[in-house]
Computed example of a mutant assay.
Amino acid sequence: MSAPRLLVVEGNTAEARARQIHFGGQAAGEGYAQLLRELAPGAGVDICYPADPGANLPDSAGLDGYDGIAITGSSLNIYNGGPAIRQQIDLIRTAFTTGVPIFGSCWGLQLLTVAAGGSVRPSPRGREVGFGRRIRQTAEGAAHDLFVDKPGVFEAMTVHLDEVETLPEGARLLATNDHSQVQAAEIPAGRSTCWAVQYHPEYPFREMAAIFRRLRPSLVAEGFFLDEDEEEAFIADLEHFEREPGNKALAWRCGIDGAVISKAVRTLELRNWVERLVVPTRAARGRG
């Protein structure tokens, strides 16, 4: 059986990608593609940039040639509209016509929600950042292939100011927490099945460290840290985790466990998507 062909939809503008790189991170699409190549060895992974002016985007025939589509996070706010957002909504609505399975992280969940007829709002609880706490699978989530081998309650790397307000018709809520009701969902749209999460199973610790550097000094002003020295110490902890994920003292200080620390567990949602949705759908489409 040949390896699948996957498409990563980069949610950020060129300016936002450059800013993340400036602070020591990666463009979201590049990091996502790298992980998908690890989870699906031999897979062909392309990246498209629908937020860029004049981007050469695949049409329905082009999208139909892929076995799965993954959508990154983004610093955009979908309710602000504009060409960078409209082009992404149009692309995803075209993808819905193909039957190709779709996965979304953070912005990806919000983009899928709006493209399928739901709504997104600024979170009334403000920003959720660092580690999303006590994300709990619903009864449907506990029985869903998205969460096979995942703990029923877990922490996950996260950063978002917006959240799903109303899921599209027919969607199933798969996970929740005290900050945002929708932490994971399955969204049927057109001919496609979409799995999406509000957090970032694709992020390594070094990417979260870069995000915290990029967000300075906002996080002090928002009350997450007493001062910039405290924030800098937390960033150093994240970078230390990247070098030494088994450090028990750091895990205790950050209040996290293997669901975040172990890359194999942290990325399970994406592995399950590839193995339990992309591969079977590919076979059903006669592409195996």
Rank of each mutant, 00 (worst) to 15 (best):
N80K: 13
A185W: 09
S75D: 11
P280I: 03
N247Q: 06
V100S: 09
E169T: 12
A18Q: 13
R206D: 09
L111F: 02
V278L: 01
R282M: 14
I89P: 01
A33N: 12
R134Y: 12
T72L: 00
D227R: 00
I235S: 06
K248L: 06
G29T: 00
H160F: 05
R253V: 02
S75K: 07
L161R: 12
S74D: 11
R253K: 14
A196L: 06
A209R: 01
G255H: 01
S123F: 00
E228V: 08
P151W: 07
R191K: 15
V153D: 06
D162S: 10
R127N: 09
P151I: 09
G11Q: 09
V279Q: 15
E244Q: 12
I47C: 09
P245V: 02
P41C: 05
E163F: 05
H240Q: 08
G258I: 09
A3D: 13
V8K: 03
A33T: 10
T166H: 06
A284K: 15
I261F: 11
S2E: 10
L91H: 05
P124K: 00
D257S: 15
F103S: 05
L109I: 01
P280N: 05
E163Y: 03
F96P: 06
L270I: 03
S192G: 09
L111G: 06
G132I: 00
